[in-house]
Write a protein that binds this DNA or RNA. Structure first.
Lengths: 211, 211
DNA sequence: AAATATATCCCCCTATTCGGGGGATGTGTA
DNA sequence: TACACATCCCCCGAATAGGGGGATATATTT
C-alpha cells in the first residue's frame, strides 16, 4: 500500500499566485514530494512539461487562456503517463464530468484539507482515484435516476430502448411484443410527456431523470 | 462542516459474525455513534428497521438470501431517508455500479481503515459521498473512453451522435455540415469497423471503448 | 359495480431515415 | 507525390418514425 517511487515529482498549474505558492510550500515540505515547477497557465507550462517530467500534475480549472479541463488532453499528449489531479473551486456537474472524461485521476474541491490533499496525491500515484465528498456525491447522484416518473414500467423500458438508439422493431423483438404495441406505448409516452418526437421525449425524460 | 445530529443512529447488516461484531464494537466506541442493531441478513432486519429508525445503514453485498444490492431499494422503501453505505470485499464494476444506481450513498471496500470508515460515515450523514480509492478509480475509468480508436475525431463525433439516438439530419444540423457529409462519414465508419448497420457499429465501438 | 390504468394488438396514412452504390473537391500531412 | 481527412453531390429501395383511428383483456381503484 506504500509508494514504490522514491520521490513524487509534482507540477502545479494554478493562476492565483497566493494559492500556487501556498501549495508549493505546503507540498514541498512533505517528505517524498518534489515540486518540480509551478506555472500560472497551461501555455506557460506547455514547453517545459516534458523536461519537468512530473509523476503528477495539480491542475486548476479556471486558468487564463485554455481552461484546465481542455488542457488535460494536451497534457496527456505531452506526458501520457502523468496523473492529473484537479484541484479547484468549481464543482459544477458539467465541469467535473468533463474533467473525468478527459482523463483526470482525481477531482478535489478547494475546501479539501491539506492532509487530504497529500493523502489523495499518494493515492493517485499508487493507482487509486481521489474525489472530494461533494464530487463523490454528484457522481453517485448521476448514477441514480427516476422518481415520480409519469411513465409506467413498460413505458420507461421502451423509452430506455429508444434512448439506446434502438429502433421500434428492435425494441419490440427484445421485449417479445408486437411492433404495434411498441408504437402504442410510444404514442402514450409522447402524450404523457407532451412532446411529439423521439428527441423531445428523451430530452424531457432525461431532464426529469426518468431514464 | 460538523454534524448537526446529536447522535448518528447506525444499523449494520453483515453476515460474517466476526466482522459484524467487530464493526459494532469499533463504531460503538466512537463518540456520537449509536449502533441501534446489527443483523446477519436483510430478511432478519426487514421488520425491525422501522423501529430502529437509523440515520445510516452499513450494508454488506454478500448476504445470505437477498443480496445487499437488491436490498437497497427495499430498504429505501421502508426508510426513504436512510443513508446506505456499502462496506464489502466485492469491488467488481457491475456490483459497484448496481449499488450506486440503486441509491447507495457510498461504497467502501473492506481494506478501508477504521478511521476512514468513521470519516466516511460522518461525510455521508452530512450529505457527502464516500468512495474507496479503488472504487473512485473504477468510477473515473468508466467516464474515460477510447484509446487507439480507428475512427477520426469527426467520425467519433458522428458515431456518438448516433449513439445518442440522433438522426443523421440532426447530427448534420448540430455539426453544421451537410447531410451527405454525415452519410459519407457513416459509410466510412461502417467500413472501418467492418459492419453494415447502426446497431453493429455501436456494439463494436462500445466494446472497443471508442465511444 | 363502474371507472381507470395498463398492456396488448389491429388498420390507415405520409414523410423521413437508413443503407449502399457511384462519384468529386479541397486541405493538410507523411 | 501520395495518403488521410473532411466536405459535398447524385442515384436507388427498404425500413422507420410519427400521427390518426380503433379494439381487447387484466388489474387496480373508487
Amino acid at each position: 500500500m506504500d509508494i514504490d517511487i522514491k520521490t513524487i515529482r509534482i507540477v502545479i498549474i494554478e493562476d492565483d499566485t497566493t494559492i500556487r505558492e501556498g501549495y508549493t510550500f505546503l507540498l514541498g515540505n512533505e517528505p517524498g514530494f518534489d515540486i518540480c515547477a509551478n506555472y500560472a497557465s497551461f501555455e506557460l507550462a506547455e514547453k517545459k512539461l516534458l523536461s519537468d517530467s512530473p509523476h503528477l500534475l495539480l491542475l486548476d480549472v479556471q486558468l487564463p487562456g485554455i481552461s484546465g479541463v481542455d488542457a488535460i488532453p494536451k497534457i496527456k499528449k505531452i506526458l501520457p503517463d502523468v496523473q492529473i489531479l484537479i484541484l479547484t473551486v468549481y464543482d459544477s456537474e458539467d465541469v467535473i464530468f468533463a474533467a473525468l472524461k478527459n482523463g483526470a485521476s482525481g477531482y478535489l474541491t478547494k475546501n479539501t484539507t491539506p492532509d487530504r490533499i497529500i493523502a489523495s496525491i499518494k493515492e493517485v500515484v499508487n493507482g487509486g482515484g481521489a474525489m472530494s465528498t461533494s464530487v463523490a456525491k454528484l457522481v453517485m447522484q448521476s448514477f441514480q435516476k427516476s422518481m415520480a416518473s409519469p411513465l409506467t414500467k413498460r413505458e420507461t423500458q421502451i423509452l430506455e430502448g429508444i434512448a439506446g438508439g434502438k429502433s421500434r422493431r428492435k425494441i419490440a423483438t427484445e421485449l417479445f411484443i408486437d411492433l404495434e404495441t411498441v408504437k402504442t406505448h410510444i404514442k402514450n409516452i409522447y402524450h404523457k410527456l407532451d412532446v411529439n418526437s423521439k428527441d423531445e421525449a428523451l430530452k424531457v425524460a432525461r431532464e426529469g431523470r426518468f431514464i
